[in-house]
Design a protein around this nucleic acid. Sequence first.
DNA 1: CCTCCCATGTAAGCCGTTACATGATTGC
DNA 2: GCAATCATGTAACGGCTTACATGGGAGG
Lengths: 177, 177
Amino acid sequence: MSLKHAILVQLETEPSSGYDLLQHFKSGLGYFWNAKHQQIYQQLKTLSEQKLISLSLEKQKGRPDKKTYQITKLGTEELKHWLTNPVKPHKINDALLVKVYGGHLIDQENLQNELMLHKKTHKKILQDLLNMERTFLESPPQTQEKYKLPYLTLRRGILGEQAWLTWAKEALEMLKK
Amino acid sequence: MSLKHAILVQLETEPSSGYDLLQHFKSGLGYFWNAKHQQIYQQLKTLSEQKLISLSLEKQKGRPDKKTYQITKLGTEELKHWLTNPVKPHKINDALLVKVYGGHLIDQENLQNELMLHKKTHKKILQDLLNMERTFLESPPQTQEKYKLPYLTLRRGILGEQAWLTWAKEALEMLKK
DNA sequence: CCTCCCATGTAAGCCGTTACATGATTGC
DNA sequence: GCAATCATGTAACGGCTTACATGGGAGG
């Protein structure tokens, strides 16, 4: 629903190609918004038709032209409008918890293994986020001031992942009894 | 994607009508899986056609027949199969964080107000979850043993909401400077 | 009377996933 | 040579949301 706005936010920061956006969704932004390349390219097409973004072709040697999009005046307006109106609370649809809820139907060992698998992923994510935080905290004060809002989203990620890991520890202990 | 399985899990516990399921999605299960009535009724129809669930009509005085669904053998198999295979990690698509990320475009006050609004909602959810936990902890040991897996999902909710509130406090302090 | 809760549905449209497709460059 | 990364797309399908629709009972 707001992939649209996630793209506009990014383009407001700097003009990007579809591929660039994809990279952002894999790193920083990606912690709280996910999108695949197919969806991004389709959305860019739509946004372009709606005149919320515009396109420039950058010629590249040897490679096909790189399509760089930038936000238009209309796009900035739309973005500001969206930012000013409240968003609905985030909906959680977490299949793992459905599984835990109904886990009495399968081996406890099986359940534990799956939890441990997810734990690995979450540990990795936390490490990545902590690394980003370290980089941020080592940057000069004016950089920190400039990126303080993205930093807040990073903090959300860190606190969220830590809470997840605390839960997993608790859950595994309980399952092992 | 696994509304299907969320429904099967619930029906495995007890036969229910569409309306009953809706109530579960508004309370316990609802913390980690959301669905609207339209979606539930459609899904029940589909599952019924696939013979994963079956229907009995309960006659009621004065009211139209209540449609009660129960899980079939085939449904239980499908559920066990799903439970045994790993699920993909939960994807977060959180519009509020997109907003914070791009919040430099609007009033800081506006952003703070929205955060406070969400804080209220999360506080309410946490209170509800803590109440459910109290009820659980006051129940007899055999009940606790029986519902230990759903209790784990409750714990996930509590830890998650507490982490959210910790973050919000931190964020609001930072924004006020 | 009016609103909330019980109780169930159809239909259109949007959003997102999966599968299919192409082709160049870089590093091992 | 082969895999990974850069770089962009189309098409089909499935899931979810929004709007529309109906009708009885309970309580203030």
